[in-house]
Design a protein around this nucleic acid. Sequence first.
RNA 1: GCCGACGUGGCGGAAUUGGUAGACGCGACGGAUUCAAAAUCCGUUUUCCUCGGAAGUGUGGGUUCGAGUCCCACCGUCGGUACCA
Length: 853
Amino acid sequence: MSERRKQFPFHDFEPRWQAYWEKHGTFRTPNPEDPDFDPERPKYYVLDMFPYPSGAGLHVGHPEGYTATDIMARYRRMNGFNVLHPMGWDAFGLPAEQHAIKTGEHPRINTEQNINNFRRQLKRLGFSYDWEREINTTDPTYVRWTQWIFLQLYHSYYDTEARQARPVAELEAKGWSREQIDAVRLAYVDEVPVNWSPDLGTVLANEEVEEWRSKGHTVERRPLKQWMLRITAYADRLINELEGLDWPEGIKLHQRNWIGRSEGAEADFTIGEEKVTVFTTRPDTLFGATYMVLSPEHPLVDRITTAERRQAVEAYRTKVGSRSDLERTELNKEKTGEQTGAVAINPMTGGEIPVWIADYVLMSYGTGAIMAVPAHDERDLEFATKFELPVIQVVEPPAGEDWRGFTGEGTAINSGLLDGLPTAEAKARATQWLEERELGRKTINFKLRDWLFSRQRYWGEPFPIEWDASGRHRAIPEEELPLLAPELDDYKPSGSPEPLLSKAIDWVDRGDGVRRETNTMPQWAGSCWYYLRYCDAANPGAPISTEAERYWMGGDGDGGVDLYVGGTEHAVLHLLYARFWHKVLYDLGHLSKPEPFQRLVNQGLIMGEDGQKMSKSRGNVVNPDDVVDEYGADALRLYEMFMGPLEQVKPWSMKGVEGVYRFLARVWRVVMEEQKDGSFRLAAKIDASDPSKDLLRCLHQTIEKVTSDTEKMSFNTAISQMMVYTNALTQEQRVPAAAIVPFLALLSPYAPHMAEELYQVIREKFPAEAPATLASDLDWPVHDPAMLVEDEIELVVQVNGKVRDRIRVARDLEKEAIEQAAVTSPKVAAHLEGLTIRKVIVVPGRLINVVAN
RNA sequence: GCCGACGUGGCGGAAUUGGUAGACGCGACGGAUUCAAAAUCCGUUUUCCUCGGAAGUGUGGGUUCGAGUCCCACCGUCGGUACCA
């Protein structure tokens, strides 16, 4: 197979052009401070989600998004933009540490090898990255600023009045105590129940649990003291400011749901002397509350449980507490709970209801306690049915619907002062009633929890924090950053939640009872701000210079990254975390716009040839290196763009790769011909003549279509049009150079190597046609609308909506004449026989529909 | 269950947003070239028939001169999510 003769020498010219671009710094992007910077040009920042450099190397999914952004970068450059198009490595992470555990080798070594492999693989695909801006999240010069940003969070609090972050120094000045300040920092320490994996030796974020568990690791829940980031302070802004972003609606919705804002009210019930506050989105149903449920972990449970119920309650709490999350989900088909024996007083009705505990009420949401309204809540109804608790209707559904389990809006009944009110008004009325008596208040709750930010791993950024002898945390001075982790003898987790770094006693112990924080940051930390660092990648004095930030992230428009392409797997994690950090830095005056990513595009997954997800175990993985060896980088790029719409999931097809490879070979053969010795030279049929009218029309149609499709990122149809034009060129006996150069310009973002190579050959022979040194320096061609008009056009003639004939008429023929020509055409006339014409519809330039009966 | 995306030839997919359904590519079939093959080039290729048509975009209805596109109901596939009061 690989012995087969290549149809064009991509193995020669692809590496040659890559070397040329690199040597000449073709894709270097000057910054505002640089002497060769041109401020007249508009800016375009086009970004890929940078990869984790895994040992497996590049996957065909990577070049999908990367080719799309590369086309956009090259296209915008040819249109006169200053284009920022960078690449780097999200290189902290558990796999490198797992490797270190196995081999005893420092994770940096393996990470470096993997990066070198990724870089080699990406470079041979001819992406126009400015490699001078390459970044690596594990590099000390990068870690320094990740830690610096953490300190910005640590030194800030959220001012709920001003609805923005401010330095805690302001609070100090106001005389706040150390404890008061610690309680409001954006980065704070708290003891919370976390997902702890003994064999991984770290805690995991909720969203990471499933992934590792499926790989056979155990994950359990236990309370641990952890660093948290107060992302919940930004919940409403993270929802509201999604509004103006050009993102797929599905992703925005996903974020909104994740943040989970719900408006409702708190109501204060009483149990004896104790006050128990519940949260409800339906204060209008207070009269339907027939029992109350506390979460098993609720702090009041001990105090209110009666003596005769104590044993059962304790047993239930123990059972629930030992249950893993997995068991909880499996068991959630059946509701469970126990009676506490206590009785709560409804603040609105004064009625008494029994108090239960049940694990369907979560301590971590709302107040950890609910009023149960079984008539109008599915879960409460299920519980009430099982334990034979009363069900009282308080909402009358619109006609025809069953009231039992009805959760929609209707009219309040059996509800005293609320009777007869529609749900919305009843809610407002009930809330007002509670507020007037100080028995409740309007509240907004979010599903979003604060971000558990510490890990017990080795291969992550250490916290720039130390603990003094009295057990208080404090920041390490900025001048001491970066704070790097010490070398370890072995990287094996101890099995206890003690962080790995605590093994490095010399490093931890700072003398005088001062100890360094031993937790490290999660992998998300580096990816939260990497798009900022690209703007000024080597700056030793700041994460990003003011000038670079203003130019690349600011501007007159909405600012930020103009186009961000990546997979949907980051819909709520990376994309939410990064927005959060960005807003904090914006509030603190470091950034000029509140949102980082203006436009987001998700590429669809590439499936295996069998339609299944690619995986080693299925044996359907395609290695980009093999494809490049066999067909070249241009063919791989072009194929991935030709498969179908970028956003769509689509299966790989090696035959499809061959198809675009054949197309490239046709392009090659239009320009080049083979000599006896097997080398190629410019084909004799290429000349300096003027293109025929038909060819010129096809060229301009192609310019128009490829331009508008590229603009819309409809790459598959742009390529299809280039195929159409190539087929037209193939038919020509003599091919004017003037008909080829603009086409090579169109081709160059898609198949840059071939465009460059063919352009050079033509340029040598026809310098008059060649206004630039490289194909990639050419101006993007502009189509001439005058070239598109035809003197005669074809119109479709329908009779009662069915196509009966096609007629050729002069372009500017008048409507009456067109109608006349249509009805008199023999085929149409035959279909009209015996019918009376009722109406004739003429769609200019397209069709005529004769309505007759 | 809920949320989201989608359903068009043998296959991947087009269709200017209500105006010629199937562009382009793959595969298949036929031909040219060749000692032969590969590669290349030229045709044909939605289905059915009586070669003039008829049907046809998941199913059933509707709006319209005209529907893949809009509306209603249903079926199916894929992805996300899981007691958030």
